[in-house]
């Protein structure tokens, strides 16, 4: 009971991170209808870029977030045409082929990570990692590491920035038009190819940045991708695939599940619990908690 406030706060803080690993992914699905199995690998690669950059430049890793974003956004932008080619293929089922394609990508990235970064776990040294606030009231107490607070702030900033872009800019309107109706958007002079490339770039950039933050809070390794892909999937499926507004709620739910299992149960059962929830939601409300998935 005494740990309840801590569990809730932890859940909220972890949940923030999960927003950022899922929101770009959900956007990419909503617009391009691609499920990117490599999402966790983009996170992993971003984390290692952050690590090496901060070691090399001796700059606080959190300040390097924009650099990581730009590098990976460009990578994603350049990469998208290949995916576009698979998705617009005539043979077989292009959506399935795209799934297989990103799955292959994920395996290759993981192998690449293992080759270059080795098998060991690391963490990204941030000056903020040591500090924390502690609140005590009576028997209850809550400890909030500064870095996690920054993580939440980052998550909120990314979410707000993304929703501003989607709602207020011409680019955002083009993206929404594309998500709703490809042909009509094409008639309005929106280039699906160009817009998709930007969307994919933004998604990859956000995921890679989140990797750096994860590295400042937890450990990173070349094998971390799979776990974050699962979490990302969980959030997106629970939110309803492609339904961005559902992402924060599903992310906080995942954060809560994780923190409660960490504090009250065996953390080894976390993934199991995650799967059971996923299963139950698919059974009861197949299109996500809000029934708005596509």
């Amino acid at each position: 009971m005494l740990l309840l406030p801590q569990a809730l706060v932890d859940g909220l803080l972890i949940g923030g991170i999960y927003i950022t690993i899922a929101i770009g992914f959900s956007l990419a699905y909503g617009v391009m209808h691609i499920i990117d199995f490599a999402v966790g690998e983009w996170i992993m690669l971003g984390a290692f870029l952050g690590l090496y950059l901060s070691q090399w430049t001796q700059v606080e890793p959190l300040l390097l977030l924009p650099v990581v974003f730009v590098v990976f956004a460009v990578l994603g932008y350049l990469f998208q045409p290949v995916i576009h080619r698979v998705l617009s293929g005539k043979k077989g089922n292009p959506l399935l082929m795209a799934l297989v394609f990103t799955f292959g990508l994920a395996i290759a990235f993981k192998g690449l990570g293992l080759t270059v970064f080795g098998f060991f776990s690391r963490s990204i040294p941030s000056a903020m990692a040591a500090d924390s606030f502690t609140f005590v009231r009576g028997d209850f107490f809550v400890t909030i590491p500064v870095i996690r607070l920054i993580g939440l702030a980052y998550a909120i900033a990314v979410t707000l920035a993304l929703s501003w872009i989607l709602k207020r800019t011409d680019f955002g309107l083009a993206v929404q038009a594309l998500a709703q109706n490809k042909e009509a958007a094409g008639l309005m002079g929106i280039s699906a190819k160009r817009t998709n490339s930007w969307v994919y770039g933004i998604y990859v950039g956000i995921s890679a940045m989140s990797g750096v933050l994860i590295g400042c809070m937890f450990s990173i390794s070349a094998q971390m991708g799979g776990k974050y892909t699962v979490f990302s999937f969980f959030v997106v499926v629970l939110a309803g695939m492609g339904f961005l507004a559902g992402v924060p709620w599903a992310a906080f739910l995942l954060g809560m599940v994780q923190s409660f299992f960490l504090i009250y149960f065996d953390p080894g059962y976390t993934l199991l619990a995650v799967f059971i929830i996923l299963y139950a939601v698919l059974l009861i409300s197949p299109k996500g908690l809000f029934g708005k998935g596509v």
């Binding site: 297989v100 292959g104 994920a106 395996i107 290759a108 993981k110 690449l112 293992l114 080759t115």
Partner: peptide
């Protein structure tokens, strides 16, 4: 050994394309 993973992944991706 890890090279094998890379090759596996690249083979899948290239086959699809």
């Amino acid at each position: 050994q890890v090279l094998y993973l890379i090759i596996l992944g690249v083979v899948i991706a290239l086959t699809v394309v």
